[in-house]
Design a protein around this nucleic acid. Structure first.
Length: 254
DNA sequence: CGTTTTTGACCTGCGC
DNA sequence: GCGCAGGTCAAAAACG
């Protein structure tokens, strides 16, 4: 009997230790989200400053209310294409070569989902980070449906927004946790992402990525998915160490 | 063969 | 007026 109690106590201690680790991980993730948030803000500020300093990316005839919205998409550093998969269908109608002020070529796209849709976008690599594509949108779509992003069949990897939004966060410590939204089953959130983008489009707001990140960070589902990924990561590590723990998100102490 | 992408040419605006 | 850059057009090429 005492032996069983001892075993249970030992197991309880291990669970408590794992809970502590899990909490620490969640705190780390929280700080990573904060860093990501501030990093994106920095990029936005830098881009806006460069526009104020004479770059003509934003055309002067646009009032503040009509200001084109921009999104930032991280791509593979070796990827030289100017394709931004945002759920809409685009027809490329021009490209400008690199100039003295613009070291990277710029692509011009028109929305081809309907023949009358007036929306255009320009895509260019960020001057701050060559792996980031900056897409500038002009106009408002005349079609309500957010493209085939909302269709279940569009969840193929190369066509999904989540694919473009997948990211790997690598903190300096060797215990780094790599997070890839696409690999964390977050593709199931495609329709949610589409709805968010559609809402922003309908609002006609300058829906920059900062707002977007703020919204997904506040999203309890996103946090839950993130936590699940962490739990999976910790569980697999625990298994490797010979601990067979049944960690769940519904732990009362979490 | 229809659609999409590429690419050189052209037009316009702006600063000097 | 000239040069430069942004934006667009349209023919050719590439692709499925």
């Amino acid at each position: 009997m005492d032996e069983k109690v001892g075993m249970l106590e030992a197991k309880l201690r291990r669970v408590k230790e794992e809970n502590c680790i899990l909490r620490a991980r969640l705190e780390t993730l929280s700080s990573i989200c904060e860093k990501l948030h501030s990093y994106i803000k920095e990029i936005n500020d830098a881009e806006q400053k460069s526009h104020q300093n004479g770059s003509t990316l934003a055309r002067p005839e646009f009032s503040q209310a009509q200001r084109p919205s921009r999104i930032f998409v991280r791509t593979h550093s070796k990827d030289t294409s100017l394709m931004v998969k945002d759920g809409y269908r685009w027809k490329k109608y021009g490209q400008k070569k690199a100039t003295r002020d613009n070291p990277s070529p710029r692509g011009y796209f028109r929305c081809s989902m309907t023949p009358t849709c007036p929306v255009k976008k320009r895509v260019q690599r960020s001057m701050q980070d060559r792996s980031i594509l900056v897409a500038t949108y002009e106009g408002k779509h005349d079609h309500g449906v957010f493209g085939d992003l909302l269709k279940p069949s569009s969840s193929k990897p190369e066509g999904s927004m989540a694919n473009n939004l997948s990211m790997t966060i690598k903190p300096k410590d060797k215990d780094a946790t790599n997070i890839d939204l696409a690999l964390c089953n977050w593709t199931q959130r495609d329709s949610r992402l589409g709805k968010v983008a559609k809402q922003q489009n309908e609002r006609g707001s300058d829906s920059n990525i900062e707002d977007y990140v703020s919204s997904i960070i506040k999203d309890p589902d996103f946090i839950t998915t993130l936590a699940e990924a962490v739990v999976q990561c910790i569980s697999s590590q625990s298994k490797q160490l010979g601990l067979n723990l049944n960690l769940g998100l519904h732990e009362p102490n979490l």
